[in-house]
């Protein structure tokens, strides 16, 4: 089937078998290997990307069902060479060890902040529960996300990206 996927602002016309997941499309067909395949069953969150601004598991999504959608992966978060605030905060707080879950954690955190429903540490933990980190970097992931949330609430809203 012919589909058009807008990935990180670039339109890609692709011919795909209907059983191709969005995850495999990104990694194999588009060479965007930042999005990781962890469990491939929607249980770990490593494959999290943003579709039309919402965080989803790309491993349980058929690419042909996202014809025309705007997709943001870890490769699309930095703008003009400047890291996304969440990426910056993950470095500041050393919020990873092996790094395999990190692209999913970061895309999920970007989605979380856009949703605007996490205000306390408990709420961040609960609403990040779809992303597993087997190294156990959770305290630092939490600190990184809390830093960006507190910056957001302190600063006037800015225009632009997710």
């Amino acid at each position: 089937m012919m589909v058009t996927l807008h990935v990180n602002g670039v339109a890609n016309k692709l011919t795909l078998a209907p059983w191709t997941t969005l995850l495999d499309t990104l990694r194999i067909h588009l060479g965007l290997t930042g999005t990781k395949k962890g469990c491939d069953h929607g249980q770990c969150g490593a494959c999290t990307v943003l579709v039309d601004g919402r965080r989803i598991n790309s491993c349980l999504t058929l690419a042909v069902m996202k014809d025309g959608a705007q997709i943001t992966t870890i490769e699309g978060l930095a703008k003009d060479g400047a890291l996304h605030p969440i990426q910056r905060a993950f470095i500041d707080h050393d919020a990873f060890q092996c790094g395999y879950c990190t692209p999913g954690q970061i895309c999920s955190a970007v989605g979380l902040i856009a949703e605007g429903r996490a205000h306390t540490a408990d709420e961040v933990r609960e609403l990040m529960s779809g992303n597993i980190c087997r190294c156990g970097a959770y305290p630092n992931i939490l600190a990184a996300i809390e830093q960006v949330i507190s910056q957001k609430s302190a600063a006037p809203p800015r225009d632009g990206g997710p």
Binding site: G45, R55, T61, G130
Partner: peptide, 9 residues
């Protein structure tokens, strides 16, 4: 139930 990503889908 589930996770935020799954609830979005």
């Amino acid at each position: 139930g589930a996770s935020p990503q799954l609830r979005n889908m």
